[in-house]
Design a protein around this nucleic acid. Structure first.
Lengths: 226, 226
DNA sequence: GCCTGTGAACAGTTTCACAGCG
DNA sequence: CGCTGTGAAACTGTTCACAGGC
């Protein structure tokens, strides 16, 4: 299959994981991998991995496996990593600073072209080599850099207002870490991430496990990101 | 349906979101809500919300809606929030500090009974009112507090070793924020959260949207947590 | 009349088994 | 003979429509 008939979202999330694993293998000087090995390193089922990769068209050699460098580049291309994505990050508290300083973004095609915080104490600080700017500069920076992605790591109370400003400034995709449900105009895609929900799911599964002693703990990871 | 025939995991994740919204409504002095209103505040489909709640047994009154305080307590009980969960958090960088200082955990039945970091510079600091301890104390604290949940917010290189130590010390559920796939012995449940995957999915959807102009941006949030 | 609760259709995702090529 | 690629089956989760109480 080509990339036309649309790749399932669940597959896209896993492709991002494969990309990370493959990058590690390339750095380790590895030439080829089998689906079984790659699946094990990514924590998924081998057959499922092959089905995921089938959405990119044939990219392995039968009896051998996949060439790691080629496969990595192919996935990177499909995920749109060949062109860097300009992002702005609003709210430089601990979480915002963690996101800004996380090396994983830069190496995967994301660049934070603007860090913003409402607190004068934060403005001017350097985070990951970039200065924190005042909120007043938000619209100008979005316009001048053409940033299409906005990340919100503010307190819940101001997240909706920040979302409105990002959308008005032309940002089309928003990732929200504040624990509120945001509404955005049509044409703007909002994704919600609440760090406490995973913990609650974990606690629920733990409780359920105690209640039903015969139940095995399922297995490995199940969460969305990786 | 009672809670016996098992509640779907997707439903559990959404119940956590409803719980947050309901807590806000209770604080606002609200008496009852309809499924439509609650669904809108949680960013989900009203029919889906009713189906989710049906797993707890009938808990609304027809023609009226749900009593917010009662429903909140019911969900809290099902999610196991009536008894506090003791957690240990390993890796007090920016992300770890953000998690430790996030008020949302404490009010939802989670208590960090131990914060750990390998860096001597971090040890002794107070985060969210609790001191950062040296890694050497990990096993003792897990044993003495009976912590059943461990959160890993360390660099990727040491995450597996931390996982091993947590599992050996008796932790049964692990939430991993490090970008590596962890393996744990049977009986230990590991959930993986990678902050960069959501960003990559967002970028992919954005790219796909440009490629197929007729496609609407879906709608609201889709991600797991909230 | 309004809103809940739910069975039934639907869509998406995972698993399986195996055909096909190197 | 090993490993990829893929259709078919099984499963899970979501959406819809409406029956049923208040």
């Amino acid at each position: 299959m080509q990339s036309r008939p649309r790749i399932p979202e669940a597959t896209v999330a896993r492709l991002a994981v494969y990309l990370r694993v493959l990058s590690g293998l390339v750095d380790g000087g590895r030439g080829t991998v089998s689906s079984g090995e790659l699946a094990s390193a990514a924590g998924v089922n081998p057959a499922g991995l092959r089905k995921d990769l089938s959405h990119l068209g044939p990219c392995g050699t039968r009896g051998v496996g996949y060439e790691v460098a080629t496969l990595r580049d192919r996935i990177a291309a499909v995920l749109g990593m060949e062109t860097a994505h300009a992002c702005v990050l609003v709210g430089i508290g601990n979480l915002g600073a963690a996101l800004a300083g996380y090396g994983g973004f830069g190496t995967r095609g994301f660049e934070f072209v603007g860090l913003f915080d409402a607190s004068p104490a934060r403005v001017g600080q350097l985070i990951g080599g970039r200065p924190v700017r005042p909120m007043a500069d938000l619209e100008d920076v979005v316009t001048s850099t053409g940033a299409t992605i906005g990340v919100i790591a503010t307190p819940a109370e101001v997240a909706q207002r920040v979302c409105d400003r990002l959308a008005a400034a032309g940002v089309r995709s928003i990732l929200n870490f504040a624990p509120v449900t945001l509404t955005a105009p049509a044409g703007v895609d909002v994704r919600q991430v609440d760090l406490s929900v995973e913990l609650q799911v974990l606690a629920f599964l733990d409780k359920q496990r105690d209640a039903v002693p015969g139940t095995a703990p399922a297995g490995e990871l199940a969460g969305g990101m990786a």
